[in-house]
C-alpha cells in the first residue's frame, strides 16, 4: 500500500474480510450446536467408558493382577473371553464376504431391463425391513427341529433325523446373510449404476467378451465400492447380538464379543469388564476397517464416467 495520505493500519475491508485474511470464518460458528451435541452424547460417554476400563473390580485385580489394567489382562488371558474375538470373526468375515460377493452378480443381472425386475428387487430388499428378532423368529419356525424344512425332508424320507440348522453357527450365519445381503445389494447396485454403461459398450466394440469386460472395466471401477460395502456389512455383522443369542449357541460356538460384554454386565455385574470388552470390540473392528480402507486407497478412485 503506497497510497499517500492513508493512515497506516486502517483497513477499509469489512470485518468479515479481515477475519478471513487471518483464517477465521464466522460461519464456522454454526458448528457449535453440533459440537455440543457430539460432545454430550458421544465424546463424554465414550471417554467415561474408557475411564471405566481402568477401574477394575477388586476381584478382577486379585484374580488377574496387572493393577489398573487387570481388565485388559483378563481379556487377553481368559480364553473364555479372548476366544470370542475369533468366534465373532469366524461369523462376521465370511458373512460380509459372502454378502458382498453374492451381491455383485445379482446387481449386475438386475441392471438390465426385464419383466418382473421390480418385483424381484423388492423381494431381495424386503428383509432389510425385518428386524433381527423377527428374522430369528422366522428362522426358528422355518428351519428348527420341528420346522417346515425338517418336516418336509422327513416326510419325503430324505433324512432320518431332523437337520440341525439353527441354534448353532449355521443359524447365525443364515440370519447374518438374510439381514446383511439386502444392504450389500442396495449399496453395490448404486455403485454399479454410477458406472457409465457406454464404457461396457465401448469395450464390446473393442472385442472384449463378458468376462474381459467385467474383469478389465467393471471390476476395477467397482472395487472401491466393494471395499466400502464390505466394511459396512462387516461392522454390521461383527456387532451381531440378538441372532447370536436367539438362533445361535450362546455359550458355545456363537459366543460372540457382544454376548460376552452383555454377560459381564448383566450376569456378573462387572460394568468395567463389560466396557473393556466393548472397547476391544471397537478396536478389532477398527483394525479390519483400516486394513480394508488401506487396500482401497491403492485402487483407482476417480470418476466412473456415469451419473456418479
Amino acid at each position: 500500500m503506497s497510497a499517500v495520505g492513508q493512515r497506516p493500519g486502517r483497513a477499509t475491508a469489512s470485518l468479515r474480510h479481515r477475519l478471513a485474511e487471518r483464517g477465521i470464518d464466522p460461519t464456522l460458528l454454526l458448528l457449535v450446536p453440533g459440537l455440543v451435541v457430539a460432545v454430550a452424547l458421544f465424546v463424554y460417554p465414550f471417554s467415561y467408558g474408557i475411564g471405566l476400563t481402568v477401574q477394575p473390580t477388586a476381584a478382577m485385580q486379585e484374580q488377574w493382577g496387572g493393577g489398573a489394567l487387570a481388565n485388559y489382562v483378563a481379556f487377553f488371558r481368559d480364553p473364555f473371553v479372548f476366544d470370542s474375538v475369533w468366534l465373532t470373526m469366524r461369523l462376521a468375515l465370511p458373512a460380509a464376504l459372502f454378502n458382498v460377493l453374492a451381491s455383485v452378480p445379482v446387481a449386475m443381472v438386475l441392471r438390465h431391463r426385464f419383466r418382473g425386475k421390480r418385483l424381484l428387487t423388492s423381494l431381495l430388499v424386503l428383509p432389510i425391513t425385518l428386524g433381527t428378532v423377527l428374522t430369528a423368529q422366522g428362522l426358528l419356525i422355518f428351519a428348527g427341529r420341528q420346522g417346515w424344512i425338517n418336516r418336509t425332508l422327513l416326510e419325503l424320507g430324505l433324512v432320518d433325523e431332523p437337520l440341525k440348522l439353527v441354534n448353532n453357527y449355521l443359524g447365525v450365519m443364515l440370519s447374518l446373510i438374510i439381514t446383511g445381503f439386502p444392504f450389500a445389494f442396495l449399496l453395490i447396485s448404486s455403485y454399479l449404476s454410477g458406472i457409465d454403461p457406454s464404457l461396457e459398450q465401448a469395450a464390446k466394440t473393442l472385442g472384449a467378451g463378458w468376462w474381459q469386460r467385467f474383469r478389465r472395466i467393471v471390476l476395477p471401477l467397482l472395487a472401491p465400492g466393494l471395499a466400502t460395502t464390505f466394511v459396512l456389512t462387516f461392522v454390521l455383522a461383527f456387532s451381531v447380538f440378538p441372532s447370536a443369542r436367539l438362533v445361535g449357541d450362546a455359550m458355545g460356538e456363537t459366543r460372540v464379543m457382544s454376548l460376552m460384554a452383555f454377560r459381564a454386565f448383566g450376569e456378573q455385574n462387572d460394568y468395567t469388564m463389560a466396557s473393556t470388552i466393548a472397547l476391544m470390540m471397537g478396536a478389532v473392528e477398527l483394525i479390519v476397517v483400516v486394513a480394508v480402507l488401506g487396500l482401497r486407497s491403492l485402487l483407482y478412485r476417480g470418476t466412473t464416467g456415469g451419473k456418479g
Binding site: D196, S198, L199, Q201, A202, A203, K204, T205, L206, G207, A208, G209, R216, I217, P220, L221, Y300, G302, T303, T304, G305
Partner: peptide, 19 residues
C-alpha cells in the same frame, strides 16, 4: 455380437476407460 464384428466406434461421450 459386437465384439466379433470388428468395427471401431467413437461414442458421443467418448466412453474412455477412466482408470
Amino acid at each position: 455380437p459386437p465384439e466379433r464384428r470388428g468395427f471401431g466406434m467413437v461414442f458421443q461421450s467418448y466412453a474412455l476407460f477412466p482408470h
